[in-house]
Amino acid sequence: MKELFIKGKDWLEARKLWDVFTYVFFGGLTTLVNVGVFAGATHGGLSWQIANFLAWLLSVLFAFVTNKLWVFNSHTENLSALGWEFSKFIIARVASLGIDYGFMLLFIQSWGMNETVAKILTQFAIVAANYVFSKFVIFK
């Protein structure tokens, strides 16, 4: 199994796709955190607006750690550099939160879509935007 993993990783790295693969993998896990928290919070009685923010907050913290350590292998020299990297990450994620709320408003209030279905569909745009922010702005 380990041999297969190494061959697959080498193949992806040779084509400069390893970052994309790990981002999609950990992005999928981040999406599960986001949708899971959202669904749990809305089913627990919170409004979709508050549930969406809570889901965003917890998934951002999860995503920062996984992106830093395993997707982009970012190494910072000191606490100040880590703080700057985290600040850029938060700023980019606030921008994607705006995209998230925009789509959620459109899907739920304008189109009458189920909240959880809207949340799942919104994640496609969020994952793409966050990859671009992370790859070219934050962990370059």
Rank of each mutant, 00 (worst) to 15 (best):
residue 12 L to S: 02
residue 71 V to I: 10
residue 107 F to L: 02
residue 62 F to M: 08
residue 86 F to M: 10
residue 137 V to W: 15
residue 84 W to C: 06
residue 137 V to H: 07
residue 64 F to P: 01
residue 79 L to C: 11
residue 90 I to V: 15
residue 122 T to V: 10
residue 68 K to H: 10
residue 79 L to Y: 14
residue 60 V to D: 08
residue 23 Y to G: 04
residue 3 E to C: 00
residue 88 K to M: 04
residue 84 W to K: 15
residue 123 Q to D: 05
residue 52 N to D: 11
residue 10 D to W: 00
residue 42 T to V: 15
residue 21 F to Q: 05
residue 19 D to F: 13
residue 69 L to T: 11
residue 105 L to S: 09
residue 94 V to M: 11
residue 7 K to T: 05
residue 40 G to P: 04
residue 108 I to H: 04
residue 19 D to R: 15
residue 25 F to N: 06
residue 8 G to S: 03
residue 13 E to I: 09
residue 12 L to F: 01
residue 107 F to A: 02
residue 129 A to R: 06
residue 94 V to Y: 04
residue 108 I to D: 03
residue 36 G to F: 05
residue 52 N to Q: 12
residue 130 N to S: 01
residue 116 T to M: 06
residue 81 A to R: 15
residue 70 W to F: 15
residue 102 G to R: 06
residue 72 F to P: 04
residue 47 S to A: 07
residue 48 W to G: 03
residue 125 A to P: 01
residue 112 G to K: 01
residue 89 F to M: 06
residue 17 L to Q: 03
residue 61 L to N: 13
residue 19 D to Y: 13
residue 105 L to R: 09
residue 25 F to M: 13
residue 62 F to P: 02
residue 107 F to W: 01
residue 77 E to H: 14
residue 123 Q to W: 05
residue 45 G to K: 06
residue 111 W to I: 07
residue 97 L to P: 01
residue 10 D to F: 00
residue 106 L to G: 09
residue 122 T to D: 12
residue 140 K to Y: 05
residue 36 G to A: 05
residue 17 L to N: 00
residue 1 M to S: 09
residue 44 G to N: 04
residue 73 N to R: 15
residue 32 L to G: 14
residue 80 S to I: 07
residue 102 G to K: 07
residue 39 A to Y: 14
residue 87 S to P: 00
residue 51 A to T: 10
residue 60 V to T: 14
residue 119 K to A: 03
residue 52 N to E: 10
residue 68 K to C: 03
residue 120 I to G: 02
residue 17 L to F: 00
residue 61 L to C: 14
residue 61 L to T: 13
residue 66 T to D: 07
residue 2 K to W: 08
residue 132 V to L: 07
residue 53 F to R: 06
residue 85 E to S: 14
residue 20 V to P: 00
residue 126 I to S: 11
residue 16 K to I: 00
residue 114 N to E: 08
residue 126 I to C: 10
residue 36 G to C: 07
residue 21 F to N: 03
residue 94 V to I: 15
residue 119 K to Q: 12
residue 113 M to V: 06
residue 2 K to D: 05
residue 135 K to G: 08
residue 20 V to D: 00
residue 120 I to T: 02
residue 37 V to S: 08
residue 59 S to R: 05
residue 60 V to A: 13
residue 40 G to K: 04
residue 92 A to S: 14
residue 82 L to R: 14
residue 112 G to Q: 01
residue 55 A to Y: 03
residue 106 L to P: 02
residue 126 I to H: 11
residue 88 K to F: 03
residue 8 G to D: 01
residue 24 V to Q: 02
residue 18 W to L: 09
residue 107 F to R: 01
residue 122 T to Q: 12
residue 76 T to R: 14
residue 88 K to D: 04
residue 116 T to H: 04
residue 108 I to C: 08
residue 42 T to Y: 04
residue 89 F to C: 05
residue 126 I to A: 11
residue 1 M to T: 00
residue 79 L to K: 15
residue 54 L to G: 09
residue 121 L to Y: 10
residue 67 N to F: 07
residue 73 N to E: 12
residue 7 K to D: 06
residue 100 D to Q: 08
residue 46 L to K: 04
residue 72 F to H: 09
residue 71 V to T: 12
residue 56 W to D: 01
residue 133 F to Y: 08
residue 57 L to I: 13
